[in-house]
């Protein structure tokens, strides 16, 4: 091959590489991740479990109220709250934790990174694909539950139910971001999954107890307790859902009353922004760490 011909070939390939859009590569990864996740056992298992539990909670929490034994979407939303706080973070954290660490352990990450893609494309593409899968899984669970409720009790409280779905999606995306961050810093899937489970346990159980203990031990003021509660995305989610059901945060005690009185109408936005921050910050950190990683 002459040098001239080689240069012409390089120029044409380079222009095609330059024309290749960042989003195009990312969407390719997202599609593949979505397809793989949809076909995986964890998706089927989590979706099935969430659907069964959501329908079950709908029946149980609302039975005995009204002539049909149902009191509509609003009450079901309240009943589902605790289930969501338990199941959804577990789904999202473990899904995220297995993503990059799994590819790394299987040896497939190196091969992917040897393609004309950037690490950011790989990470964000995988995030989008998994986010799509989680949203699908949640929509199936909520959809079946909503179908049963609409059939039995009509459309009372649909708005509150829709807000519950929206906040649940936000919570899932936030927890997925945390899972991806865990995945980026873990060499092995088992370590990543273990770390994800530890964080899940801490958020679900320990942080509640820790908050109570700290407020007693250190005699924290209500605003400090509220600030600390916002550090836990699950608490932010719980308060956001309660506020959006037009219920008073008084049910959460003095801290809730303080938040209602102090922030009033903007409280819902503050809580939603907290969840968005929990989505953006860990994902941004994961992208940065992954891009700067010296090895695969």
């Amino acid at each position: 091959m002459t040098t001239l011909a080689a240069t012409a070939e390089l120029n044409s390939i380079e222009s095609s590489a330059l024309a290749r859009s960042f989003t195009g590569g990312m969407i390719s990864f997202a599609r593949r991740e979505f397809r793989d996740a949809i076909a995986s056992k964890w998706f089927v298992l989590y979706t099935l479990a969430f659907t069964v539990l959501a329908v079950g909670v709908s029946f149980l929490s609302l039975s005995g109220v009204g002539s049909q034994g149902f009191a509509g979407f609003g009450r079901t939303a309240a009943g589902l709250l605790n289930l969501i706080m338990l199941v959804v973070p577990l789904m999202a954290l473990t899904a995220g934790a297995g993503s990059i660490a799994g590819e790394r352990e299987r040896g497939t990450l190196l091969y992917l990174l040897a393609q004309p893609v950037s690490r950011t494309q790989v990470l964000l593409g995988k995030y989008l694909g998994l986010a799509g899968t989680l949203v699908c899984s949640l929509c199936i669970g909520f959809g079946v539950s909503a179908g049963v409720l609409a059939w039995k009790a009509g459309g009372v409280g649909v708005g509150a139910y829709a807000m519950l779905v929206a906040f649940t999606v936000l919570l899932a995306l936030a927890m997925l971001s945390v899972g991806m961050l865990i995945s980026v810093v873990s060499r092995k899937t088992t370590v990543a999954t273990g770390l994800a489970l530890f964080i899940w346990l801490s958020l679900v159980f320990v942080s509640d107890l820790g908050l109570m203990a700290s407020s007693i031990l250190f005699k924290l003021r209500v605003q400090e307790v509220f600030g600390l509660a916002l550090l836990n995305p699950l608490q932010a989610f719980k308060m956001a859902v309660i506020v959006n059901m037009n219920a008073s945060l008084d049910v959460l005690g003095p801290v809730g009353a303080y938040a209602s009185l102090t922030f009033g109408g903007s409280l819902a936005w503050i809580l939603a922004s907290t969840l968005v921050l929990w989505m953006v910050v860990p994902l941004g950190l994961a992208t940065l760490l992954f891009a700067r990683r010296g090895t695969v």
Binding site: I13, E14, A39, T108
Partner: peptide, 21 residues
């Protein structure tokens, strides 16, 4: 790196890709 890799095809020791694909 992305543009540089567009100029090269890479063949590893053993193809590492999802077995189910």
């Amino acid at each position: 790196g992305r543009n540089a890799r567009a100029l090269a095809g890479y063949v590893p020791q053993e193809l590492a890709f999802h077995d189910d694909a």
